[in-house]
Design a protein around this nucleic acid. Sequence first.
RNA 1: CGGGGCGUGGCGCAGCUGGUAGCGCACCUGCUUUGGGAGCAGGGGGUCGCACGUUCGAAUCGUGUCGCCCCGACCA
Length: 493
Amino acid sequence: MADGKLTPRGEDFSAWYNELVERAQLAEHAPVRGCMVIRPNGYGIWELIQQGLDKMFKDTGHENAYFPLLIPKSFLAKEAEHVEGFAPELAVVTHGGGKELEEPLVIRPTSETIIYTMFAKWVQGYRDLPILMNQWANVVRWEMRTRLFLRTAEFLWQEGHTAHETEAEAEEETLKMLGVYRTFAEEFMATPVITGRKTDSERFAGALRTYCIEAMMQDNKALQAGTSHNLGQNFSKVFDLKFQGRDGTVQYAWNTSWGVSTRLVGSVIMTHSDDNGLVLPPRLAPTVAVIVPIFKTDEEKATVLTAADAILKELKAKGLRVKMDTRDNMSPGAKYYEWELRGVPMRIEIGPKDVAKNTVVIVPRVTIDSEEAPAPGKKQKLFVNIDGLSQKIESLASALQGQLLANALERREANSYRNVKSYGEMCEILDGSGGFVYASWDGTPETEAKVKDETKATIRCIPDPEFTQGLTPGTCIVSGREAKHIAIWSKAY
RNA sequence: CGGGGCGUGGCGCAGCUGGUAGCGCACCUGCUUUGGGAGCAGGGGGUCGCACGUUCGAAUCGUGUCGCCCCGACCA
């Protein structure tokens, strides 16, 4: 392959990302504007995300259901803030069966309105609560500008929707699911995230409060990776979702909704990958290890393939997602480059020398600090005995997973600023290298808007205390007024 | 929606002072190769986004149109 290398991240991060997504065959642009085709390499990542999250949802008592793609337009209009938030990006179906519809149907941009309409039918008394539901679905938002995985006109996501008896219970659920997202980000995506609350201007249209997880990408921009909303009684009141309480009075239910999307795939890409291509945390890698057999003569081919086949069978039997690359029209070197581009966490090389020694060579996609250091300028190569190979691969996968999380955390903290003294200094950071600036905020939307105007940075969230490292609100870094919160400012996707 | 760019074999591009299409990669066949992107030989594949116009003749010039990408404002 002479078409060579990706544009380096340092040269043009955006070009690097686009080339990587296409070259690693994760996704490409569909014939329809703003839409993407998710190819098997990319969809495999999403499937693992789904599996991981779905289990966590079930473990916390949620059930899956499915609601229709099409929603009567009037449903959206019932919640004022909600319709205002979504109206500009709706796709609307006006015809069906060759006739104009009496009422236009919108393609769901999110499903609160239809789901709470149905909840209202299912709930009579407090014993019908809580409802803890989730759906895996596609939604459409007619975005002006799109980027593969990060923002597409149609995307895949899950949306959890719950109804509760009390406000406290709803708040607990909102925070519980935010916690689920955080755990998932850290344990599966190897991505450290900040948990916190959105400001009013960034709050979900129709929510009382929106909480989020925010991650930092390699270009030091923030990416909102997931949100969890306490909807209060805003939707239950307009959709008449009420129940008779323990005290006999009729009350409106308290709702929450929470979601993550295929954007997480983009997040994983931009968090870990390098100039050689995709880097995937093993837990989200459709293929954890690829075996590349090496041989010259026919006799060597026979012995190597016999040994490699046995290894493949053994590893598969142990439940490992392993492949063998038996293509004979490609040199081993070319295969190495290709599998690195595709982000396979480990390569297993096996040649005549290895077979003779009953070993293989394992090359991890990124250097693992706890293993023997690589020679200067070289890739880390681990010589591993074939006996007990599956355990070794599992332990390496686990080490790699931890390594990626540690690398990402180190990078995020190296680009986090908690002692910025002035607004000028803050602008310098935001306009320069970027990153997360923790600073006091007076809590007003005017201040927020001013910073956005002047720097294009927004308040990503009001972080939970564990992230502020003892900082307390003093005077607002922008206005000089008394501050209400420590906020994180950053440019964002 | 504003600014920029691009539509030519699967992909990336050249050809654009008009004369009926070419290069690299990929693909197919054969032989030699294979521990970090193999070599040689042969071969298949495109009515140049679409429409109209100018012309003896249009990938090339003109008008229109559709689409996509990138940068900005808006958003997961």
